[in-house]
Amino acid sequence: MTNAVETRGLRRTYALDRRAKTGRSEVVALHQLDLEVAEGSVHGLLGPNGAGKTTLCKILATVLLPTEGEVRVFGRDVRTQTRKVRRDIGIVFGGERGLYTRLTARQNLHYWCALYGLRRPAVRARTEQLLERVGLVDRADEKVEGFSRGMKQRLHLARGLAGDPRLLLLDEPTTGMDPVSARDFRSMVDELRREGKTILLTTHDMDEAETVCDVVTLIDGGRVLAAGDPRSIGALVSRHERVEFDFVGPVAETVRDLLDLPGVVGCTSVSPGRHRVETADDDATKAALSLLVDRGATALTTSRPRLEEVYLKLIGDRGMAVR
């Protein structure tokens, strides 16, 4: 499989305002970043505010130049083959901006289709196709300023698809969307993946990343911290399966018995009355479950470490701070 995106030693710095008197002349947004996004995949980019996600998207969108390093989109250099790269990419923001709100949805799409080189009959046909796709046919002639957040986001997606791009950059596309709209949006992303589009998704939503992404990359401070399948990336935290349970009354004896079982590697309390057993294999999990049922434990669940845990472990809890 070829790569839709490839960065090698990508570095981007921003000059700092001298008046800020920080003692630094520049800030490093991306630090020797190496990244590969396979063609046809949905690749999640996760990281806290200031991690470098948007800087990377800006470079791929050709609105920002790399300071150093190499960036290729479908093998084309973003620095020297800018026009060709632009024909292959579509951008979708989250939020209110990026649309002509005094125009109708249809007028917005006509315009963007024309900017991507379509002629009049193709502009009309593609606009109708996109409106159909995002479910806005019935509202196509209403001004965008009257649209709900979810409708605007669908229009954003349609606009991003105006040029039939091979690579779609989705920058926090479900920000501020209600759960139903967000779910619909994710199913549209899934459809696009089935059509063979490559999608680079930046998000803060771990569930979203786990649901739609084939691969996730965690970045912070402009560096890649980890990358992998979101369903198996939990191995970075623990390779063990977990059994969680609620227990009323003294639990010490049950914990001792659990630890005596072969393949049980640990037992900890995760909150008052709730405990977690870690097991090395399926047999150990079965044995632990059987013992816990016998002892009257309730609310039993089995799981593996989730992406959110990996994120918190690697990024750390920094509260509201931005680097």
Partner: peptide, 18 residues
């Protein structure tokens, strides 16, 4: 102000023509 400038820059169309 509408946030369309980066989208225009990254489109294949020339900024001046737009």
């Amino acid at each position: 102000r509408a946030g369309t400038l980066p989208l225009l820059v990254s489109s294949p169309a020339g900024l001046f023509e737009v």
